[in-house]
Each structure stands twice: as structure tokens, then as C-alpha cells.
Simulated scan of single mutants.
Amino acid sequence: MEKIISAKGVRKGFPVAGGDTFWALKGLDLEIARGQLAILKGRSGSGKTTLMNILSALDYPSEGEVFLQGSNIVEMSEKERGLLRRRKIGFVFQSVALVPMMTAYENVEFALRLAKYKGSRRERVEECLKMVGLGSRLAHLPQELSGGEQQRVAIARAIAHRPEVLFADEPTAELDTNTGLQVVKIFKELAASEGVTIVMTTHDTGLMEIGDVVYQLEDGEFVG
């Protein structure tokens, strides 16, 4: 399988009192293939969100290399990293962060404008909302949608510009178990239909078996 993300010797340190360093990540190696649903699992404070931020070019490692489609993103300029995030990466966060005065359609369409999407925005917005089961809810405002439906709008928004990789940080944390499972199943379907690679953090042990590959973190290291 084609390797889309790889990390080698990734360490992340933060200065603490007394001139010492707290190592949140302690030399991690990782590989994720195209179209996989990869899960970064661990308790709060295990380092999973820190690792995701580095893999998604939101933060830099203290040491190590991170490659996306063969390009070392650690060596890129801030401008290059910004373009990478806008064009090749999608994000879904625990807080859906939808614009409250925009409908589901407008929230997704706005993301396409920001990404300077070249095709028909209307067709792509409707296609993405249908993919997540909201084809009949285009005109609804976020407050008129359930928590699960809001998260599905956020997913449609994140994949609308056809990213290579979708990063989802605890996307099911605010949802009940059944709704959370529905969201993860949507991720699996998107990986198959869109060819997008998905990297998701979670502390929910019930979601582990759904992932194609699971990396479990504990105190900044992979275990198990």
C-alpha cells in the first residue's frame, strides 16, 4: 500500500521550571497508508493530540522528521505549511465550530471558498452533505441540528475540498456511544469512497476495532 504519512524519531519537549524539559513525545516512528483509518488512542495527557498537531503541520517537533506524500513538512516554510493545510488537509475537532448564522449548506460552501475550490461548489456541497446523510438538511442552521448532525456537517466541510488526509481530534467525545459509532462508520465509508486517509484521536476503547491501524500512546510512547 502507498505510504502517505510517515514519522521518524519524533520528539516534542516543553520547558519546565528549573531549566528541565518535559518530553510529551519520546521518539516515535509511525507509518500510515493511503485510505486507512488510523486511530491514535490514549488517555488525556498521553501525547495523542500533540502527535496529531505535528503530523498535521499545526506544530513542529523538537526532533525528528514527518513526511506527507514523501515531502518533509518539518523543513517547509510557514507559508508552505499553510498552503499544505489549506489544500491537502482537512480538520474535524471535538468542538464542531460551525458558523451559527450559516446553514449547513453555507458552512460547507464557505470552506470551499477559503480553499479556492475550482469546480462547481454547489455540486460538491450537495454531494458531501449527502455522503454524511444530510442531503435533506441543507437549509438548517446548526442550532436546528442534533449534536451528531452538527458533527456530520463538520465532516462534510472538512472533506469538501478533497483533502489527502483528514485529521479528527476526539470527534466523538461530545456524542453518545451510538452516535459516535455512526460518525466513525462515516469515516470508514469516506476512506473507501473518497480515498481520503483519516487520522483520529480517541480515548474510547470501543472504537479501536474499527480502525485499520491503531497506535496506542502512554506517556509519549507507543505501547502494545
Rank of each mutant, 00 (worst) to 15 (best):
R85Y: 12
A24W: 06
E2T: 15
V96G: 00
R137E: 10
P100A: 07
S71P: 00
G27M: 08
R34E: 07
F167V: 08
D204E: 11
F110M: 11
E194R: 01
E126P: 12
E31H: 10
Q182F: 02
A111T: 05
L112R: 02
A104M: 06
L181A: 10
L129D: 03
L141W: 07
T201W: 05
I198S: 03
R157Y: 03
K79M: 09
G224S: 12
H203G: 04
T49M: 05
N72D: 14
K8D: 08
T177P: 00
A17I: 05
F187Q: 02
V183H: 00
G35M: 02
M101G: 00
P171W: 06
Q150K: 13
V214P: 09
V213N: 05
E2N: 14
K116D: 15
A97R: 14
K3Y: 00
S193T: 14
Y60H: 08
R43Y: 02
L114E: 01
T179E: 03
E78Q: 15
M208F: 09
S146I: 08
T103L: 09
E144N: 14
P15G: 09
E189K: 15
Q150E: 08
V165C: 06
G27R: 01
T49I: 05
R152A: 00
L30A: 08
G148R: 02
Y117K: 01
L145R: 09
E78H: 10
A139D: 15
E170K: 12
M200W: 12
D169M: 02
G135I: 03
E164C: 12
T172W: 07
T205Y: 13
L114V: 14
T202H: 11
G13S: 09
G64R: 01
G70I: 10
V92H: 07
L68C: 07
R157N: 03
P61W: 05
L175I: 07
M208L: 15
E65D: 10
F167M: 06
M1C: 13
Q94I: 11
L83N: 15
G148L: 02
Q143P: 00
F93K: 01
R121I: 14
L58P: 11
R81F: 06
I39R: 00
L83V: 10
E189R: 12
L98N: 06
R81N: 06
I5R: 03
G133I: 09
L30N: 02
L138M: 11
V92L: 10
R124I: 08
E189D: 14
E189I: 12
H161V: 11
V125Y: 07
K118L: 06
R113P: 00
L129N: 02
G18R: 07
E123V: 09
A156C: 14
E127W: 13
S146W: 09
F187N: 01
Q143Y: 15
Y60R: 10
N53M: 09
I5M: 12
P61I: 09
G119L: 01
A160Q: 04
F222G: 08
G18D: 07
E2A: 15
I89H: 04
I32V: 13
R121K: 13
Q182S: 12
V125S: 09
L30P: 05
V99P: 13
L55W: 09
P100M: 04
V99L: 15
G35V: 04
G47H: 09
T21G: 00
R85F: 11
I54Y: 03
A38N: 01
G148P: 05
C128Y: 04
L114I: 14
A33H: 15
E149S: 02
A24N: 06
N53I: 11
